[in-house]
Design a binder for these strands. Structure first.
Length: 319
DNA sequence: AATAGAACCTGCGGGC
DNA sequence: TGCCCGCAGGTTCTAT
C-alpha cells in the first residue's frame, strides 16, 4: 500500500502519538508477520517493558528507537563507538542518537503492499486481518493490520547493526531529499543502463522510496516516457525527472499521502494527495493536461500509465 | 553484473 | 449465482 509519502505520514503520526509509553505486552496473531530472525514469543518478550523514543523512516521502512522504561534492568553505557552507524549510510542526523546509553534496541516495520499501523484503544473491534498487537499504557494499542501478509516486523537488539537484521536496509539508495541524491548521482546511476527508466525508478538501490504510483506520476511530470531506456535519456530529461521525483514526493507528503488507495494514517484517516493523480490508474481516461486517453502497459511486471502526448513533448507537465 | 520473472498471500471486480 | 482470470501500492529469490 504505501510508498514514501504514506510511510512518512505514518511516521509523523506515530511520533505524535506513541512515544514514551511503556509496552506492557502484545499478541502476535500471525507468526509470519514477525521476520524469521526471531520467534513471535521472543519478539514480544524483548519489547515488553520498553517504550518508543522516536520513529524514523528510511525508504519505505519504519524504525522505532526503543528505550528501557523505569524499573527495567539497567543498561550499561556504550564506551566504544563503532566506526559505522548501525543504520547504514544516508541516515543523516540519526547517527548521533544511536548510542545514547538509554538506547535498548529497535523495532522495524515494513508495510509492504497492504500493511497498516494503527493507533487505537484496545477496545476497538479487531479487523479481520489484524496480525500483531502491541499493548501500551492507558489501554492504547499499536495495531498492525495486513490483508496480504507480506508486511514484516523486526526486533533488533541495541548491540546489533540494524541492517544485519533488517537486511533490506543494506541495498537502499539515497533518500530522495538528501544531498546525496544529486542530479550527477542520478545521471551516473542511469548511464549506459539497458532497462526502461520506469523499471529503474522502482529499484530501491537507485533512490529509496518510490513505488508504482509515484514512479508513474514523476515520469508524467517530467515528460518522459516510462519505456525510455536509461541509456537513451538526455541530460535534460534526467534533470527534469530528478526534479519531478522530489516535487511529486514532497507534494504528496504535504497532502498526507495518496487518496486513490485504501491508505489510512495511524488514526485511520484517508490521505489526500492533492486530490488526484495525473496518470496512475487512469487508463482510457482523458489526460488532465491534453485530454488524450491515458495508456496502460506492463513494465517489470507492474502496470504503467502514461500520456503518449505529454510524455513526448520534451518539457515539464503540470502546474 | 545486470536484468527479467516468479514467488510470497488474500480479496476484489469483470467476463462468461 | 458462480467460476475463472487478472489485478493490487513491495521485496526477494531464482534463472538467464
Amino acid at each position: 500500500m504505501p510508498e514514501l509519502p504514506e510511510v512518512e505520514t505514518i511516521c509523523r503520526g506515530l511520533n505524535h502519538l506513541t512515544l514514551d509509553r511503556a509496552i506492557l505486552g502484545g499478541d502476535v496473531l500471525l507468526a509470519s508477520s514477525i521476520a524469521r530472525s526471531m520467534s513471535a514469543s521472543d519478539f514480544l518478550t524483548k519489547l515488553k517493558g520498553k517504550s518508543i523514543e522516536r520513529w524514523y523512516r528510511r525508504g519505505k521502512y519504519l524504525l522505532a528507537e526503543l528505550s528501557q522504561c523505569r524499573g527495567g534492568a539497567p543498561v550499561p553505557a556504550q564506551t566504544v563507538l563503532p566506526s559505522t552507524s548501525p543504520l547504514g549510510g544516508g541516515w543523516g542526523g540519526l547517527t548521533s542518537s544511536v548510542f545514547l546509553p538509554s538506547q535498548t534496541g529497535w523495532l522495524g516495520v515494513h508495510l509492504r503492499m497492504t500493511g497498516q499501523l494503527l493507533w487505537v484503544n484496545q477496545s476497538e473491534p479487531l479487523p479481520k486481518h489484524t496480525r500483531v498487537r502491541l499493548f501500551l499504557e492507558e489501554n492504547q494499542e499499536l495495531r498492525f493490520v495486513d490483508q496480504r501478509t507480506f508486511g514484516q516486523m523486526w526486533y533488533v537488539p541495541s548491540e546489533t547493526e540494524v541492517s544485519s537484521v533488517v537486511t533490506g536496509l543494506k541495498v537502499l539508495g539515497p533518500e530522495p531529499f538528501s544531498a546525496e541524491f544529486s542530479t550527477a548521482y542520478f545521471a551516473q546511476k542511469l548511464h549506459r543502463r539497458a532497462r526502461p527508466i520506469k523499471t529503474a525508478l522502482l529499484d530501491q538501490s537507485l533512490v529509496a522510496g518510490l513505488g508504482n504510483i509515484y514512479a508513474d506520476e514523476a515520469l508524467f511530470v517530467s515528460g518522459v516516457l516510462p519505456t525510455t531506456l536509461c541509456a537513451d535519456l538526455t541530460a535534460d530529461q534526467i534533470g527534469r525527472l530528478h526534479a519531478a521525483i522530489i516535487q511529486v514526493l514532497q507534494k504528496a507528503i504535504a497532502s498526507g499521502g495518496t487518496t486513490f488507495s485504501n491508505f489510512l494514517n495511524v488514526q485511520g484517516v484517508n490521505g489526500n494527495y492533492g486530490g488526484v493523480a495525473w496518470v496512475y490508474n487512469r487508463k482510457g481516461q482523458p489526460c488532465r493536461a491534453c485530454s488524450t486517453p491515458i495508456e496502460r502497459i506492463k513494465l517489470a511486471g507492474r502496470s504503467t500509465h502514461f500520456c503518449p502526448v505529454c510524455q513526448t513533448k520534451g518539457e515539464v507537465n503540470g502546474f
